[in-house]
């Protein structure tokens, strides 16, 4: 573990988490949560959990973002609250 790298990823994690909750445009929120998953994957890989990082990259950053975008396409892009 390199603490500078850790700190950078963790700060970015908090920022992306807040942004994906606060942003009004749901498509942007889906994209930002994809970025969150990618950062999470970097963190797993850096902690030595390569299997988990692999799954996170494939499922979290890859497919679940696609699923969310597919759902947004079929429902609405603007949130009401």
């Amino acid at each position: 573990m390199i603490w500078q790298f850790d700190l950078y990823i963790l700060v970015l994690l908090v920022v992306t988490a807040i942004v994906s909750l606060r942003v009004r445009d749901l498509l942007s929120a889906a994209m930002v949560s994809g970025v969150y998953s990618l950062l999470m994957c970097l963190l797993w890989a850096e902690m030595g959990a390569v299997d988990v990082a692999f799954t996170e990259a494939a499922v979290g950053a890859g497919l679940s973002t696609v699923f969310m975008i597919a759902t947004i396409l079929r429902t609405t892009r603007r949130t009401t609250d």
Partner: peptide, 17 residues
């Protein structure tokens, strides 16, 4: 090596998507 059925299956599904 790292990987397995779950990850490989997800990558296969991603190729079809």
């Amino acid at each position: 090596s790292p990987g397995g059925g779950f990850q490989g299956g997800v990558i296969l599904a991603a190729s079809f998507i």
